[in-house]
Design a protein around this nucleic acid. Sequence first.
RNA 1: GCGGGCGUGGUGAAAUUGGUAAACACAAGGGACUUAAAAUCCCUCGGCUUCGGCCUUGCCGGUUCAAGUCCGGCCGCCCGCACCA
Length: 855
Amino acid sequence: MAQRYNFREAEQKWQAVWDNEQTFAVSADPDRPKYYVLEMFPYPSGRIHMGHLRCYTLGDVVARYKRSQGFNVLHPMGWDAFGLPAENAAMEKGVHPASWTYENIATMRGQLRAMGLSIDWSREFATCNPSYYRHEQDLFLDFLAKDLVYRQDGWVNWDPVDKTVLANEQVIDGKGWRSGAPIERRRLAQWFCRITSYSDELLSALETLDRWPAKVRAMQENWIGRSEGAYIEFDFATGPDTPLRVYTTRPDTIFGASFCAIAADHLLAESLATDNPGAAAFIDECRQLGTSEEAIQTAEKRGFDTGYRVRHPFVEGLELPVYIANFVLMGYGTGAIFGCPAHDQRDLDFAHAYDLPVLPVVVPQGEDPAAFEVGTEAYTGPGALANSEFLDGMDVDTAKRTVIGRFEAMGCGEGAVNYRLRDWLVSRQRYWGCPIPVIHCDSCGVVPVPREDLPVVLPEDIDFESPGNPLDRHPTWKHVDCPSCGAAARRDTDTFDTFMDSSWYFARFCSPEADEAVSREAVDYWLPVDQYIGGIEHAILHLLYSRYFMRAMRDTGHLDLAEPFAGLFTQGMVNHATYRDDAGEWLEPQRVVQQDGAFVRADTGAPVTVGRIEKMSKSKKNTIDPTDVIRDYGADTARWFILSDSPPDRDMEWTDAGVQGAYRFVNRVARLVMGNTDALPAPGTVPDGGTSPESQKLRALVHGAIADVTDDLERFQYNRAVARLYELTNDISSAVNDGAADPACLREALEVLVRLIAPMMPHLSEEMWGTLGHETRLSDTAWPEADSSLLVADTVTYAIQVNGKLRGTIDLPAGVESAAAQEAAKEIANVAEFIAGKEIRKAIFVPDKLVNFVV
RNA sequence: GCGGGCGUGGUGAAAUUGGUAAACACAAGGGACUUAAAAUCCCUCGGCUUCGGCCUUGCCGGUUCAAGUCCGGCCGCCCGCACCA
């Protein structure tokens, strides 16, 4: 028996070889088909976690598989290196954010390299490096020149813990997405990306993303939130001269209107508040109200009667009261609505609270218009218009069109499309981010930093001792002369949202050394990313911003592309069981052992409660460090296990037993190859035609496995591929034990096994390729092709059914005739029993599959 | 409320256009080898059974020669969004 496979030596050896030989370094080559594989780049938090291991293993399988199929594969890696944790570390530990970040990068780079990834490391960069962010500043100035970004004063989301503003997308259930702190509202002048100018395009192009998960597309569709309706202008009977402009999706219900309402932040409300203490108090109250789901659900509909009255556009003499209402949002439409209580639940609740009329104007089919009433539930379904003069009798859609036509003719409204999407707020009052390259001058206003002065580099001497924005506090950094008039002026002391950095990094990877943001030649060749892989948590944020960024870069002439990611795969989470001791404290898995079927503490033997299987998290202490697993079992074992059992898009459970199972398989493959090399003919020997039946059977199994595994890899069904490779290994082992397969066939079988596991276990397969006598690199070897003539079996197993129930099976020659198959089927004892004495009314024959007798 | 998904053994799961449900693995149990252990190998492993078989994919119904798969109606769970007019 040959010696044992030493994964430590082999993995280190092959990682060094790939590195020295620059195996995975690529360059653009228009003569070859390209394939761009990318996993979402990591934030350098300190150490890699299981989520990284899963994501990068999945990506590496794609990269290595596509490479073996002859594609010119771009598979880069970098660091999403700006962000708040670096500043928090600076405050807690007194280290500079830059050194903290670069130290983490060094650690994590080493951990990723130990995974044996087929990365082109020559393209690596970190977004916190001025050589990267200078181009981001450049892009920003291009966007500014094209009016794709702007600065505006308005109400923004303020995170009181992280002490910065946040984009709408970063407020989850009324709380900051990082800090979890309830969001406050502040009025500030901030920078925005005009993402809403692409609302329509971002929505309609979702249809073209057929290799994206339906769920992600649906989430973006929701977020963009298109609605069709109309603007209507109401003239005041009492109140200001300019009419009140509202947005509605139900213009057909105009005759059911019984009030108008405006948001607390509406200009009209604010101006009223200046000399009306009651209004001011009510507006204040509205702003106090939380925006969490709970707050919204429990909040009562409340309003403040402004005393203003508007005229109904069609009903002579009808005046509607105008309220400031707590349920009207400034951020949608015009921040003003007309209320039709009969056909909108919120309006109905409000009408009940303030004793306003409820007039049904849409009557469901079969109801008597004169008798139809609305109780506590608004009617929002289809029906015929009633109580609506010229609309009476129409269906809802016709009524909408008709009334919009009437508004347009009267000049008091028009049909309109509205989007829920808001512009992306990108300024952050933080230090560790890309400085915003503008200067504020008292006489010239906002002045772009001249291009020759880029990059605007972060100062290094920075003080984190006192609260607030460190850049703003810096004694000298912000003081500069105005580039336009030369007078004393100030730099913008905000930095960009780090999502700006990640919105174009995939483009930078195409030409990381380019003097421009991107080299046109490089992006034309490499983009779009063919397969992007990452977590579903970025379904809206990163993936929507990147889609905006590509369009903005397109419209500023940097590239010619709208969609950055042609294919998207969202991987599931890695979970682990949780444990608590009898005091209720969480316990790390390493501190728990199983004894006689029960879980106890390893140190004291005290009983342990096994909790739910949950996402690995520090707070529940149920994390496993991937590096420990790689150290103890090897990268191939870790990769193989993480690909086994669970489909990649589903959550999986990490178990020690599963890891050990994978480890056994690694050694089994190694034993199978190493223990049989002596008997094999030289590499390159092809099985000839005169092989034994056993050999032919083995060859059929081997080529069947090639076909199946190839199919599985194409469809991202890695758990199936793993199962299929277990089967192949079992088949080859049996053939070896039987000893009847000829050596050339055995060589073929072992080589195919090694080649098929290569994308998943690159070190083991590369080592075994050498063991099999090859001087070449398996990494440079083409993917095996199935011989289709071997995929056709001589005999097939038929299922024999009686009345659709299985009553037996029988092996028959492939391609047998219906009659012959039926005759043979009737011979089976159990089948004969079930058809005995009965008339066969019908016989179904599915070639090479089954016979079904209907009696 | 809107949108997306899921429901199959003790567990993770598999089942290509409807065509032999439970492949493969984990766990468990039994055995072989060994002074012993580890490693390895072999066997059993959905339920019931009179050992012939019968039943079984959340529940009810339908289509079909045939349904985990298609259709209708329920039940349950997970995820995302949500006072968006």
